[in-house]
């Protein structure tokens, strides 16, 4: 290691006064930039993110598709919008893991000891989430199109569906931000997240229509927010969604945001970790 002479250091250290205080928005943008840098330096995270949905798409379409829907192409047409919802919902776990990692390393102590907007780091997480959702969604849609999936509503339908996907991802994201704030170990956040998400995703209409399920399960599937989201996304891409479908899909994300954003702020400010 080089020997740092204190005289040389003293000479180079100037007294620096703070510049004009930046706006909350500018703080949030800086954290968004950090999220983008993470993609540059840790591209592996995208691999984790995209591999599962790709495997699901191929497995369900080619192995189960024919049996479930008569033909693989008919099943793909049904399944693809659903796998987009599943991807976004599972993706949300990663920002909770990232948050837990940052908190464990003391990085947030530095952020919290800075004179910045206290929610700015979370805005950065959201930017990272949006990017993850868009990238993973685009990859899966491309694979779907290659395999023969055709959105009846064309490009406007796809854009509307993606906008709804982002809203869904934003709402679900709060659950994992709260978990990330509560749980110190990132892998525990992941385990807790998936334990909670698996029944929610599988007991939904993502993979199959619920007609053949027993009554009690159907009752759950019909009110499962994931089913409502899937129906709306499916409808938007097929050009058959009603305003009511979209509003029902937005209900859970809106409630989660209203409920958990203040909880997040409280947990973060409580600062008695």
């Amino acid at each position: 290691m080089t020997d740092l002479s204190s005289a040389a250091l003293s000479a180079r250290l100037e007294m620096v006064a703070p510049p004009k205080a930046p706006s909350a928005f500018s703080n949030a943008l800086v954290f968004g930039w950090r999220a983008i840098l993470k993609f540059k330096h840790v591209p592996e995270q995208l691999f984790d993110l995209v591999m599962t949905p790709i495997m699901f798409t191929l497995l369900f379409t080619f192995v189960f598709g024919g049996a479930l829907a008569g033909s693989t192409s008919a099943y793909l047409q049904f399944f693809l919008p659903g796998i987009l919802v599943q991807t976004v919902v599972f993706n949300a776990v990663y920002s909770g893991m990232g948050l837990s990692t940052d908190l464990g390393k003391g990085l947030f102590d530095r952020f919290r000891s800075l004179p910045i907007w206290s929610l700015a780091p979370f805005a950065g997480l959201m930017v990272g989430d949006v990017l993850r959702h868009l990238i993973a969604g685009a990859i899966i849609l491309t694979i779907g199109l290659t395999l023969g999936y055709r959105p009846e509503a064309g490009i406007p339908g796809v854009i509307a569906a993606f906008a709804l996907l982002l809203a869904v991802g934003f709402g679900m994201g709060w659950i994992f931000i709260v978990l990330g704030l509560l749980i110190r170990t990132p892998t525990t956040v992941m385990t807790a997240g998936f334990t909670f998400l698996f029944p929610l995703v599988f007991a939904s209409n993502i993979m199959v229509e619920p007609q053949t399920m027993p009554g009690w399960l159907r009752a759950f599937v019909d009110v499962n927010p994931v089913s409502l989201m899937t129906s709306a996304i499916r409808g938007l891409m097929a050009g058959q969604a009603s305003l009511n479908d979209v509003l029902m899909a937005l209900l859970a994300p809106a409630l989660l945001t209203l409920l958990l954003a203040p909880v997040t702020l409280w947990l973060y400010r409580r600062s008695d970790r």
Partner: peptide
């Protein structure tokens, strides 16, 4: 103020 915690307060990926 500035605070340097017990564990490096840095982003290791950056």
């Amino acid at each position: 103020i500035a605070m340097t915690g017990q564990f490096a307060s840095l982003d290791e990926d950056l």
